[in-house]
Nucleic acid binder design. Structure first.
Lengths: 208, 208
DNA sequence: ACGTTCGTAGCATGGACGTGCTAAATAACT
DNA sequence: AGTTATTTAGCACGTCCATGCTACGAACGT
């Protein structure tokens, strides 16, 4: 079967295996042997496509970031359409905004898994120079997204005047991170429904 | 030097060494050799007091939790005194509440280090049964503290009626977690001053 | 002064892991 | 059919680590 292999596809499949290993056993579980196992490949194959273990992990990280980014920005497109298309109805704006931001939250099993991978990577990035860049980029990106949302809302007059955008950006970004971390790590203490309610309450409080 | 050693004190010193190792190199860095090194001891001594590596880590975790808990509850005492002692001034209440909750935030170097250790432990606890119990206990404890703060404020009439305490508890707990994680992991994106401002803004928004 | 207990030091073993390197297998191309 | 590049498989080595076990040292009680 060998030659008809799309390398990129293979790499993504391996990244997926990294996620599985990470999800079920934490960073200690992310070994070449384990990943190869999860991917149904031999260690040699994994190394052939992704070189060293470090590169493998870094690549896997970039895949998550990219994936979440893609999901969010596709949401943005549809939400912006809804938003620009007409009503300046506050409720409609709120719902559209919530839809965008909820995409970050681990509201279903797939996204919970993604969130866990995300958290593991973020903490690992703290002491791993190779991951640090991707981590920083991702963090600034989400911050900027939130800031954009808030400042456009403000210039549309949907927010009360005198609101400090920088502070509110920090607050909303932290809220989302916190909801993500808490419901990923302690799903019994913060279930998806409650997380969503908290987000909605926050946006509603902002609007007035 | 040997016989006059307080075992508990020794264990705490070792826990401190665990924190250092964890802080500077992540979980991979927490090896018996490394910890012994940081503590200025031999591996044998570390093992003598704390048995296996697993036990050592579990103990270190319990020390952080206990330490943060102690710090917060001492804050609570002084804040409650201020609160009960007189003024029903909203501003005073807000400041007192902020003082309590700010204790969770990594506003200085020491607390940042603590927060990092905390985060590492929380993520490790996800896949480590031995740590899971402590993690759960800590999480519920802080949630309950926040809930208590909010519901007493509500019954004092300091909060608008019709506020859903459960949702607001989740929201405030998530905010604190998020501020902690973000300013610990990305201090350049969220500095202590901004974190504090965000917390204050949140409490102010709650009050009205 | 002396043995007993508490603490320290370290050797040796076995296991897990990443990686260099090499060989084999497979399918595409000519 | 033969050739070649791609992919897979796996051996062998060196490193790091936790742990069992043993020996040594130091002070306290008697």
């Amino acid at each position: 079967m060998p030659k008809i292999v799309d390398p990129d596809q293979r790499r993504v499949a391996i990244a997926e295996a990294v996620f599985s290993a990470l999800d079920e056993g934490g960073p200690r579980n992310v070994t070449l042997a384990n990943v190869a196992d999860h991917a149904g490949l031999a260690i040699g194959s994994v190394r052939y496509f992704l070189g060293s273990r470090e590169e493998m992990v870094a690549f896997a990280f970039s895949v998550v970031v990219e994936r979440v980014g893609a999901r969010v920005s596709s949401r943005i497109d549809t939400a912006l359409a809804t938003l620009h298309s007409g009503t300046h109805d506050p409720d409609a704006r709120l719902a559209a905004t919530a839809d965008i931001l909820a995409e970050f939250l681990p509201l279903d099993a797939a996204r919970r898994r993604e969130a866990i991978v995300w958290i593991e990577f973020e903490t690992a990035a703290r002491t791993d120079a190779r991951l640090a860049k991707t981590s920083r980029r991702a963090a600034t990106q989400t911050t900027e997204l939130i800031e954009t949302i808030l400042s456009t809302a403000a210039s549309d007059g949907a927010l009360p005047a005198g609101l400090d955008i920088a502070v509110e950006t920090a607050r909303l970004a932290a809220l989302i991170d916190g909801l993500t971390v808490r419901s990923a790590l302690h799903p019994d203490l913060l279930d998806p429904a409650l997380a969503r309610d908290a987000l909605l309450a926050h946006l509603r409080g902002l609007q007035r």
